[in-house]
Simulated scan of single mutants.
Amino acid sequence: MSDHTVLVINAGSSTVKYQLISPEDGAAIASGIVERIGEETGIVKHKYAGQEHTENLPIEDHGVGLRKVLDLFDAHGPNLATANVVAVGHRVVQGGSVFPAPTVITDEVVEQIRGLIPLAPLHNPGHVRGIEVARELLPDVPHVAVFDTSFFQTLPASAYTYALPKDVAQEFSIRRYGFHGTSHQYVSRLAAHTIGKDVADTNQIVLHLGSGASVSAIKQGKAVETSMGLTPLEGLVMGTRTGDIDPAIVFHLYREAGMSIDEIDTMLNKQSGLKGLAGQNDFRELLRLIGEGSADAQLAFDVFLHRIVKYVGSYMAVLGGLPDTITFTAGVGENTAIVREKTVNALSGFGIAIDPELNSVRSDEPRIVSTPDSTVKILVVPTNEELEISRQTMSLISE
């Protein structure tokens, strides 16, 4: 067992994900998930020492779920009393402009996170409940909130400001916040290390491509632009989200289709993207359909790719030239060679080139997949948001 461990908790609206991590060596000692909170039957999975334990039982709320997690640690290990848990790190999606960095949680901080619920109505309520219960159940260690939005607090005003009436934007806290910040921060640091440079000496573009997808431009270690905005809906085409659209489409559907605001909201967030175009939001299924000759699936892939290339090109302009690295991460970015190949081939006019043999290798390690003469190094860096949360938590409590 490591000298020190951090329990990382990610409480969603109906789930609680957790990992017990050693920040020093990056080892995930134990992990698990509580699913279907509030439904008739919930599921709890706990993994430790190569064994997975699963239980099906009603989980009324987050309190019941987290108590069950602690029971599983007691029953199946490791014992938290002897695991040297020095802190609990909580993932919080929306920190608004209030939290530019990880923060030790106090009663006041909980209320501030609660106050940000209008900006993240799907995520922050679960975070608040998870924090409240975890502080009650584990009162003897500090609890730290790590925010998805903090990394993007370095964006210049020209990048985060929407061209709305100033008083409206201020009253309702409307600006670009960005999301997946812990992933972009972790990956950019590791990408710099992989090419033998300090992150402060690099300019980077990071493509976080999963069911949710975002891209960032990072100049000398600091984020200067990102694709997600007030919410995670803006930017790239995603599994079920539209990404960028003309905002007047909302008014058009309201007036002409008779759709309610809630119906349009649901459609844009949960029924669009790859799912809306091809009927599938799983990228493996999308590629299978393309292989079978589906024109809809091919178009979905082409739209997805076009948006990525468009953003990469614009972010090179924001950075003032070619970056040192373009890095692919998250589920699709790490595992789908054809996406990396097609993206880089579309950038060949800039002298950027991918090595097909290196690109085809599957690995859990950070790696360079560009050719030796490529003007930009192309990397694949597996993300690890939980490890980043544990390290930011440890760094804060060690100050």
Rank of each mutant, 00 (worst) to 15 (best):
N124V: 07
N203K: 15
Q392I: 08
Y177G: 05
Q280V: 15
G89E: 12
V199Y: 12
T15Y: 03
G351W: 09
R307D: 08
K270V: 07
G321R: 01
F179N: 04
M259E: 14
D25A: 04
D265G: 06
F151E: 03
G12Q: 05
N335I: 00
V64C: 02
V309H: 11
P142E: 07
E399V: 14
I261Y: 14
G243Y: 13
I43L: 13
K275E: 08
K270W: 07
V168N: 02
D107T: 09
N384S: 07
T343I: 14
Y177C: 09
I378P: 00
A191Y: 07
I195S: 05
P247V: 09
L396N: 07
V332R: 02
V146W: 10
F73M: 13
M267Q: 02
G12E: 00
T194N: 01
A28E: 13
V69N: 03
Y311G: 01
G95N: 05
Q392A: 12
Q298I: 01
Q51F: 06
S390Y: 11
V332Y: 08
T327P: 07
E399K: 14
N269D: 05
P156F: 13
E263G: 10
L347P: 06
V98S: 12
A27I: 14
L286G: 07
S173C: 11
Q271Y: 11
T161G: 06
I21H: 02
H62Y: 10
H123P: 01
L286M: 05
L138S: 06
E39G: 00
P139W: 13
A49T: 10
G273Y: 00
